[in-house]
């Protein structure tokens, strides 16, 4: 009987979370389209998410591009000589379609999702969110909406930069380590690339950016119980947004490329 009760309580807790998250998302979205918006806050969040994540995302991208070139070269060498074309193709397609958005998403989830949850969570436990309400300010409009909009807009921008830096990483390894012809590498990369590769990556990025901000805000908004509660909220934000990123990555890939 205890075992059944355990299953029941787990399922109920999960459904409770799902319900709260749905209401939270619906409320946040409805406030996204109703004035007043806070342009100053949106701007500040955009700088926080976009500009200050550049070093982390850039480093991730350049090393991914480099290792991709190296791995695919040694891998292809087992099958055939003349793998120059294949390496350039593999680097650019895997970066734009998959690695750019996913790795950037995961890095930003760790950086931004955590800080959002910690900041909003602290505001919750110190009653600052209640104080907003008493000062005629809707906490959703003031705290959540700017973060959602900034996440939605800035992650695609970050991913575009990451794509370019990543391809550059692959180029550097191919040319300087593997001795490819630089002009041929660029031609090979460019020829193979289709607009949809990049577009699908950017769509993913926009979705991931929204999810990161949403989970960060949600975890923070519902955090309770002092320092420990805020710590738990931070963990939840990062874990849940990472899992959602990987899940939605598959779903979006299926929508774009699945036949």
């Amino acid at each position: 009987m205890n075992f059944l009760a355990l299953i029941g309580s787990v399922v109920l807790a999960f459904l409770g979370h799902l319900g709260r998250l749905t209401i939270f998302t619906a409320t946040a979205l409805s406030h996204c389209v109703r004035p007043p918006l806070y342009p100053r806050h949106i701007g500040r969040q955009m700088i926080d998410i976009g500009y200050y994540s550049l070093p982390v995302v850039g480093l991730t991208a350049i090393f991914s591009g480099m290792v991709l070139a190296l791995q695919s070269y040694t891998g292809f060498a087992r099958f055939a000589a003349g793998s120059e074309t294949a390496v350039a193709n593999v680097v650019i397609i895997s970066l734009t379609r998959e690695l750019g958005p996913v790795l950037a998403g995961l890095m930003v989830a760790g950086r931004i999702g955590a800080s959002m949850a910690a900041e909003i969570g602290t505001m919750r436990v110190t009653e600052q969110i209640d104080a907003l309400t008493t000062l005629s300010t809707n906490p959703f409009k003031y705290l959540v909406v700017p973060r959602l909009i900034a996440g939605l807009l800035m992650l695609p921008a970050l991913v575009l930069v990451a794509d370019i830096i990543g391809v550059f990483g692959g180029f550097v390894v191919s040319v300087y380590k593997l001795g490819f012809n630089p002009a041929a590498y660029i031609t090979n990369s460019y020829d193979m690339l289709e607009p949809l590769d990049v577009i699908s990556g950017l769509v993913k990025a926009a979705v991931f950016g929204f999810l990161i901000a949403l989970m960060g805000c949600y975890a923070g908004y519902h955090s309770k119980g002092g320092a420990q509660g805020v710590g738990a909220a931070t963990t939840n934000a990062v874990v849940s947004s990472s899992i959602l990123i990987l899940t939605f990555n598959y779903i979006i890939t299926e929508l774009f490329f699945g036949t």
Binding site: T126, E127, Q128, D130, A131
Partner: peptide
């Protein structure tokens, strides 16, 4: 309404 919160709750 105006409210003074226990911990101040300053932003």
């Amino acid at each position: 309404f105006g409210m003074l919160f226990q911990g101040g709750a300053l932003f």
